[in-house]
Design a protein around this nucleic acid. Structure first.
Lengths: 223, 223
DNA sequence: CAGAATGCTGAACAAGCGTTTAGTCTGTTG
DNA sequence: CAACAGACTAAACGCTTGTTCAGCATTCTG
């Protein structure tokens, strides 16, 4: 008993105030954006604003700590759901899991705010999509592309950006329930997305051919 | 001569300080976002911050005045380019015209910031796209959809959102040259977009059919 | 037990922001 | 010419925000 009480609570790494602040920050950042005041984060964690700075030094460092934590959490459970049935981003896939919604909301806000983490996130999304599409091409479920990397980047920008647009346009306050957003999103746009992705949008290839003729160094046909 | 000098300069509505402030605000908002300080706008217009408030009462009202002015300018010249050859948004189409780039940048920032004007802008984009696609369907260049309105909204969210993502991810400072952005965008993504829109992304319709089977009230086939 | 270290707080500081105030200058009007 | 109205400004106010400071407990250490 004496040995149990003696050891500092640093080890368990959770339940400590530092962890409470970090979790509160992740929630606040995710729901209200990265410019949420430090005071609000402190209030949510049930501590004083000064303690937040005491533990993390700076709001920017707090944000970095949140990034680290979320990134680690995601990476640990990511491998399970990578090879799944649709091309949606990891962000989409995990957002519906009750437990991960706050983390997804946080990452989404990072993407929205730009900066280095946003670029990293975007690049990883694009890489994931490219890998997944490549697997699909080899399996015969996805059409080959003249420029697979560009296609993956275009799809990444479209997926993430459209979701960004969707959230930005919501009226009621800046508070966001990410699961609800994803649910509404799929309810509204699953059909047109599948339609265009399955059947295309244009009736013929004239515009594509015109473009291929126009570019100086046309990529070869994927046959 | 005396009658010419007597009339106040309010009539010509330009060259007056009020107009200079408005134009400076449009430029600043467009290049640096809607949260640019009033002081910076004033500096750019060559006046004191107090004069900005003196003329417009409030930063919010200044923004509203900018919205009004840009909206009117766009509406006046919009009819010319509505029926054009690709499905891109009005935003895309006009952004390449040297003269309109600042206004496009401003509207883009409004879209980015959310709020009522963003919703209006988005709805108008979606309506434009829907009308254009409908014309294409009747002309036989665009495939019909099971839900044309949803498809138009999806394309609007994708176009605007992807551009939003593209701008957000740019490293160097928040200053944005909108024409350059559009040029880079098309250089990078014209091919994959045309590819997917012309040939589709998925090799077969199995996912679409699965979805159509899944929804309780499946929309009818467009034949 | 003295003392150092750690967790934590209330209060204040400093900077950036939108806005107000009081007043100056200029040109027009009676 | 006196009076006034409008354009315009310097300075300051009030607010929010990130951060610092000085001090209070509590707990560990020698």
């Amino acid at each position: 008993m004496s040995s149990a009480t003696r050891k500092p609570p640093d080890r368990e790494e959770d339940l400590t105030a530092r962890a409470r602040i970090r979790d509160a920050a992740i929630d606040c950042f995710g729901q209200r954006g990265l410019n949420v005041p430090v005071r609000d984060i402190a209030e949510r964690a049930g501590v004083s604003p000064a303690l937040v700075i005491h533990h993390f030094g700076t709001k920017a460092k707090l944000l970095a700590a949140c990034e680290d934590h979320v990134t680690r959490l995601i990476r640990e459970t990511k491998t399970a759901s990578v090879t799944d049935r649709d091309h949606r981003t990891v962000l989409h896939q995990m957002a519906e899991a009750e437990e991960f919604a706050p983390y997804m909301a946080f990452l989404f806000r990072c993407l929205q705010a730009g900066g280095d983490l946003a670029r990293t996130l975007y690049e990883r999304m694009a890489a994931d999509i490219e890998a997944y599409l490549d697997a699909g091409v080899r399996a015969g479920t996805v059409r080959p592309s003249r420029d697979p990397r560009a296609r993956a980047h275009w799809l990444a920008a479209n997926s993430a950006g459209a979701l960004l647009m969707f959230v930005t346009l919501r009226e009621p306050g800046p508070d966001v329930d990410f699961r609800k957003v994803i649910r509404e999103w799929t309810a509204e746009f699953a059909l047109p997305a599948l339609e265009v992705y399955s059947e295309g949008l244009l009736a013929d290839r004239s515009m594509l051919d015109a473009y291929l003729l126009y570019v100086s160094d046309p990529p070869e046909e994927p046959s």
